[in-house]
Nucleic acid binder design. Structure first.
Lengths: 141, 141
DNA sequence: AGAAACCTATCAATGATGTTGTCAAGAGAT
DNA sequence: ATCTCTTGACAACATCATTGATAGGTTTCT
């Protein structure tokens, strides 16, 4: 398992077992499949098993070598990072992630990045209470 | 607990304990708080405890009588019905519901109703796989 | 050849979440 | 007195997400 499909990346044979090995990620073509599963898992700080599950669930679709090895692209990694942000930071479950992804595709806009950019701006709006019955006005008996 | 704040609604004292009692829901002002918690819970087919939790979580904000009794409006009920659709039918957790609600408010559009209307049209699109690395093209070794 | 990493498939442990149910004490209405 | 509501707290149960492990097989590298 040493096929280095093109890009000269830092040796992934150093077995990055959750170690703090840093990777210079290729910034050429984000759609190019370049990472084997162990590397992708390390980049994203997730278990390889989790990556496989995400694929089974249809969230990502990494490329395959002729010998059936998964290769993840930069876009795959970003997508997983986004899923992790939603699930770990915001607590959204996978069904929710699915809905959000579908929304994004349906609306044809990057609504998630809009939300993300506002979240990183430290705006962190309060979870607004229901707009319905806005003022819990006491009702006259 | 007999303050009937205005609308003459079917007697809620019949103790609708998940029974199949049907209610003629007032269709005048959807923001008017008219249902006590037991009635609202029955309409939505949910446990009263759950309604309280939804309120604690900030999803709904029912009105209160001078004696601290919750009164839910039609809009509250609709909002809970929508939450239930997301959680029970689509499997979204409450954190996901929260994100979707925030999105809706932020975009100032009824994206959820758009999704809902398409879901009820029996369209039920497949969970599209990741748009990244669309074609899992085999990579030459 | 042997080791490591990949593959699929399966099972299991653990922690978190959501819903429901219960109890206690109190308040309000009939 | 009885019923329904309130708050607060606790608990049971089912489900989900993540991680971990095992088995058997394949591929790659030394």
């Amino acid at each position: 398992m040493a096929s280095e499909p093109a890009t000269s990346q830092p040796s992934s044979k150093a077995e990055p077992e959750r170690s703090k090995v840093t990777f210079r990620r290729p910034d050429r073509d984000p759609t190019r499949p370049v990472y084997v599963i162990s590397v992708a898992a390390s980049i994203v700080s997730v278990h390889p098993r989790t990556l496989r599950i995400y694929e089974e669930e249809g969230f990502i679709c990494p490329a395959r070598t002729p010998t059936n090895i998964r290769l993840y692209s930069e876009n795959d990694v970003r997508r997983v990072l986004w899923i992790r942000h939603l699930t770990q930071n915001l607590g959204v479950n996978l069904a929710g992630v699915r809905i959000l992804f579908e929304l994004e595709e349906r609306l044809g806009t990057r609504i998630l990045e809009r939300l993300y950019s506002e979240a990183t701006s430290g705006e962190r709006p309060e979870s607004a209470p229901a707009t319905a019955s806005a003022a819990p006005s006491a009702v006259e008996a």
